[in-house]
Design a protein around this nucleic acid. Structure first.
Lengths: 139, 139
DNA sequence: GTATATTGCTTGCGAAATGCAAGTAATATA
DNA sequence: TATATTACTTGCATTTCGCAAGCAATATAC
């Protein structure tokens, strides 16, 4: 008997893939803080555990949101980089930041950056995408 | 000794509050599917457990993202309604939907609605906010 | 008033996920 | 050949989750 999944709400679909704190923090690290290496993610001040990090990187890679390859500059390391699917998450992560900056009384988000997001959203998104233009097949 | 929390990244701030699947699905139900009552959330096809639902409603209320009051039309029930803080999450939930609709090959998101979001984002957001304009103090 | 139904939870318990520490494998450098 | 670096994996205690059952407050029926 065929398993029919009736839950084709696009929001549920998304949340099943990246709807947890650590996945989104990894994506933030990649897209916003330009992190590439396992140790850089581990060093994030939020303190992700190494097994959770490994699990989430594996899941994000299996969903084709990030891709993993050896770092040619240091062959002991791997580079985790965003795919096109990941770059399409930039607007979403930006909205998470906008809300947080608005409601966190102790936010450290730079005000000039936040206002740039609001006054020129499209350009801001493009500037983040541009950082990864070098990624060749843009997969 | 004062506990100093150095994690004032706006993304982390947001994720600590609503960065889990069930919280975001409840917010979707409120904002997009106009659900108001406990049983309506329970009936969502994703199948949230009753204890998890109670827990998340309590947390969202304590964060002033939703407010709870007796339903004047049926005093056995409570109405959960969005606050201003919640309405400010509309753009974020919209982005979650946009991504999901783009990448779910079996999406049931109505294409005309998705294209309206893209061609007239601002108006679409306002139309959702308008549904809740009756909420008096707009807290 | 008393009984029943509805609604919104709480509680208990087994299963799964998480967090922490320690260990291991692959590659590179000395 | 030995050591260091990097990216994990494993084991285990703790927490969260999912499911079922129970309970309390209000409303409705009689």
């Amino acid at each position: 008997m065929k398993e029919v999944d009736t839950k084709n709400c696009p929001i549920f679909f998304s949340l099943e893939i990246f709807g947890d704190k650590w996945s989104l923090l990894i994506l933030r690290d990649i897209l916003h803080f330009d992190k590439k290496h396992y140790n850089e993610f581990l060093d994030s001040e939020e303190g992700i555990s190494t097994n959770i990090l490994a699990d989430r990187l594996k899941k994000l890679e299996s969903e084709a949101i990030i891709s993993k390859k050896r770092d040619p500059d240091n062959k002991k390391q791997f580079i985790y980089s965003p795919t096109k699917k990941c770059l399409d998450l930039v607007p979403l992560i930006l909205e998470i930041a906008v809300w947080g900056a608005k409601y966190d009384p102790d936010t450290k988000a730079p005000p000039e950056e936040m206002s740039k997001i609001k006054t020129n959203r499209r350009e801001y998104i493009e500037s983040i995408r541009a950082k990864f233009k070098y990624l060749d097949p843009q997969r």
